[in-house]
Design a protein around this nucleic acid. Structure first.
Lengths: 194, 194
DNA sequence: ATAAAAGACAAACGTTTGTTTGTTCCAGTC
DNA sequence: GACTGGAACAAACAAACGTTTGTCTTTTAT
């Protein structure tokens, strides 16, 4: 582990390493990705990773944390620009899905990797994800909805539907923005025919 | 592989083996489960599994197929008993979620394991899951909804939300039946306050 | 210039992985 | 009761796994 008694060197490949770990953890999952898979693309040797992280589990924890940071920033920036409660929620969903499907390997990890897959850091991961989802708790708390509506279920349904897109989404057809808007609209507007 | 030139023996432990594989694949995922994990609970030796299956991938394929069969039967039986389109959809969702969360390790595998995790049999798994989801295509095709509603999005949203419950559901609180009904209601009834 | 720390290499460690091979045993059939 | 094939055991395989250890190089601060 780096002691950081001095500033990190300019030529260090930790960022590249994290990028590649994010890419592989996000597409192949934690157990489906080996240390050797990760270092190969960065032209490192397997052992070299242990200068930066004590275990593979902690490497994941670092990627996961970065993922939560990025998607949080992205989503917050998106809904901060709006005022209407439904607009804010929609903007958040669009940002969430764009991060998830189009642009951000780190964000993918947060959705793909289940904390239970990595017991040694599971509580940490759960706490981080809960922190992120609190953004949506607040957004949904502000919605003007009928009193009979359970807001927790609303959140779980919406986020579940969004996160599950990772399973079936293929680039080229409908883009993430369109999908997110459709989902919000399905919840907002009356569906059943009179 | 068994040649089946004679009937299988009454004392063979293949059923037990499959049950345990379903349980572990469903809770720990494919890559998170080793052959030794599986045989341990059945008091077998690792090599013995290869009398029944040529590879670990094909073992998964067998469990997956059984999972699709079971959840299909369960869901079909549930909505066959109803006539109203919305009732039928709700019954299907309840059965889907009960199979997923409460009773059926095989069904869990179908939702938990991503075909991409097992390249050698991925096309087969995808085809099977598509076959199952066609049940919902038909159910949703019968719904009386506004003409502006995209039924494909409706299906993807509903199934996504249901499947994602596997991530957050913990026994003891709301039961699967309640959750499924709430989700359907959120889609069916107008939410937004006038 | 020099010392110290950053960061990676080189090579191996012990373990776990999926799988193979040869043998044994017992239930079912004639 | 002998034969046979279903179903498992016993033991090992090679490869891949996460990780450790010791050494070397290169950047950075003095």
């Amino acid at each position: 582990m780096p002691q950081l008694q001095r500033a990190p060197r300019a030529d260090n490949r930790l960022p590249l390493l994290l990028d590649e770990a994010a890419r592989l953890f996000g597409t192949q999952g934690f157990h489906g990705t080996s240390i050797r898979d990760i270092v190969r693309a960065v032209n490192m040797l397997p052992g070299s990773i242990y200068y930066h992280f004590a275990t593979k589990d902690l490497l994941l924890a670092a990627v996961y944390a970065e993922g939560v940071r990025r998607i949080s920033d992205r989503v917050r920036a998106a809904f901060d620009a709006r005022t209407d409660p439904w607009d804010r929620l929609e903007a958040a969903c669009v940002a969430h899905l764009e991060a998830l499907l189009a642009e951000n390997n780190y964000a993918r990890v947060v959705i793909r990797v289940q904390p239970a897959d990595v017991p040694s850091v599971a509580p940490d991961l759960v706490a981080q994800r809960d922190g992120y989802e609190r953004l949506f708790v607040d957004l949904i708390a502000c919605l003007p909805v009928e009193r009979s509506v359970d807001r927790r279920s609303l959140r779980l349904m919406l986020l579940g539907a969004l996160n599950w897109t990772q399973t079936w989404y293929r680039p080229g057809r409908d883009d993430p923005r369109t999908i997110a808007r459709r989902f919000v609209k399905l919840l907002r507007a009356p569906i059943a025919k009179e």
